[in-house]
Amino acid sequence: MLELDWNIVIKNLPLLWKGMVLSLKLFAIALVGGIFFGTLLAMARLSSWWILRKPSQWLVDAIRAIPFIMAIFWFYFLTPKIVGAFTGEQGEAIGPFWSAVIAFILVESAYFSEIIRAGIQSIPRGQPWAAYALGMNYWQAMGNVVLPQAFRNMLPIMLTQAIILFQDTSLVYVVGLKDFLGAASTAGQISGRVVELYLFVALVYLVICFSLSRVVKRLQERMDVGRT
């Protein structure tokens, strides 16, 4: 049995912190982008126009059917080729971070769109009709009447999805990005001691995600009281 030496973690804290910053940056961009495009996708899926409804449904179903890592690889290997086709230059066109950002926004929009769609559908149909009767157009009815209530109803589920997203950011390890896990892995390879570093990473994720999930649970209980 190995003697654990936690000094290796302390020595690498600056590197690990840099990794955590990258993880948080990716998380924040993916969260905002995912909710924004997810809302648009959800609205398209609930549209009465076939041309909006069907393609958005196919897109969401296809993205949800493939592994997250597959999506990350798609953009990692393809963006240089696509950008290259336009600019005539090969090689690292936008870099692994931004290709990961695109993959994350796309995948998260698909997941968020399903949550948001359920949220919109939880609003009684009379509400948008009443808004239209008052002379509002589609965007006014959505923006002022339906979406604010829908978002309130789905807040707990969206936060849960955000926690999952935060955990999923560790997947960028597969394209060699130095996120929190990637930084620990690099430090481990240099020092030859991965055990303490991986245990530390697991502990940090556990503490963060567990505390956040407690917050979500409390929120859910409070909202249940309000609704009865």
């Binding site: 190995l2 560790s170 997947l171 991965v194 055990v195 991986y198 697991a202 995600c209 999930s213």
Partner: peptide, 24 residues
């Protein structure tokens, strides 16, 4: 609570790299 709050990739490393070092 434990298994849901650690990223799957990290758990992969825990089983593959860490577990063999922590047992006798």
């Amino acid at each position: 609570d434990i298994f849901r709050n650690i990223p799957l990739l990290v758990q992969m490393f825990l089983w593959y790299f860490v577990m063999p070092e922590l047992i006798p």
